[in-house]
Design a binder for these strands. Structure first.
Lengths: 115, 115
DNA sequence: CAATTATTTCCATTAAACATGAAATATGGA
DNA sequence: TCCATATTTCATGTTTAATGGAAATAATTG
C-alpha cells in the first residue's frame, strides 16, 4: 500500500463524523446503507454527510451504488484490510521481537470470532 | 479505547512527516532515537520536527526521555496495539463473517514472524 | 410533465492546522 | 562563568478543512 494512500485513509478516518459513518457501514456489512439512512441514524445534515461520504469515497474506504432514488454506500473491507496490514507492517518494521507481541494481543472480540 | 483517543491517534498519524517519524521510531525499537537523529535522518527542520513530536506525544503515540543534552523519543507500542485493536474491532462490529477473513489475511511479513 | 423525494454541488464563512524565523531554555564542557 | 549544542517555544502568515444555507441534479410517482 502506498504511503499517500495510507495518509489519505488515515486522514479520512481521523474525523468524528466520518469515523462514525465508516463504523456504521462496517456494521451494516454487505447490505450497506442509503445516505439517508445514515443521516437519520447519526442525526446529521444531509449535505455535510454527503461531503464526508465523498471524502471517504475519495480515500477508497467506501463505495457507492445508486438504488432507485437513494444512493447506497458500502464499507470497502479490502481497503480496511490493507490499511491494517500496512500499520502492522510498520509495527514489525525489521524487528520481529516487536511484531509478535503486537499480533498476539490483537484479537477480534466479536461473537463467533476466535482469532 | 475511547473514541476521542482513537481520533487523536489517527489525526496524529495522518500527516506526512509524523507518519515518517513514527515509523522510524517503531523501527528503532526500544532504543528510541534522539530528536536530532530523527531530524537528520529525515532531513527536516528541528523546530518543525519538535512540533510534530509534540503532536505525536500528545496523542500518546510516542514518549520521550531526556538523555544529557538530547531528548530521546520512543514509539509507544501499547498505544499502537490499542489502536489496531480498535480498528479491528470495528471491522468485526457484530458481524463475525466479516471479521475472520480480515484477520486471516493480516499477517506480519517481517523476517521471523509467523503470525 | 409537475410534484416529491434523495442526494449532491456551490459558495461563503469560520476555524484549524502547518511551516517558519527568531528567541528562549536546558545541558554539558572549557 | 562563558560558550556550544540540542531542543523547544513563541508569534505569525499562509494554507487547508469544515460547516451550513441555498440551489441544482436525479429518479420516482401521479
Amino acid at each position: 500500500m502506498e504511503k499517500n494512500t495510507v495518509l489519505g485513509s488515515l486522514a479520512a478516518l481521523a474525523h468524528d463524523m466520518r469515523l462514525d459513518v465508516f463504523r456504521l457501514l462496517v456494521k451494516a456489512g454487505p447490505d450497506g446503507m442509503a445516505a439517508g439512512e445514515i443521516a437519520s441514524m447519526l442525526d446529521v445534515r444531509a449535505n455535510t454527510l454527503s461531503n464526508n461520504l465523498t471524502v471517504l469515497a475519495a480515500a477508497g474506504l467506501v463505495r457507492s451504488a445508486r438504488e432507485g432514488r437513494s444512493i447506497r454506500y458500502f464499507a470497502n473491507m479490502d481497503r480496511m484490510r490493507a490499511l491494517l496490514g500496512f500499520l502492522l507492517e510498520d509495527c514489525c518494521g525489521g524487528r520481529p521481537e516487536i511484531c509478535q507481541p503486537v499480533l498476539d494481543q490483537i484479537t477480534c472480540n466479536c461473537r463467533g470470532c476466535h482469532a
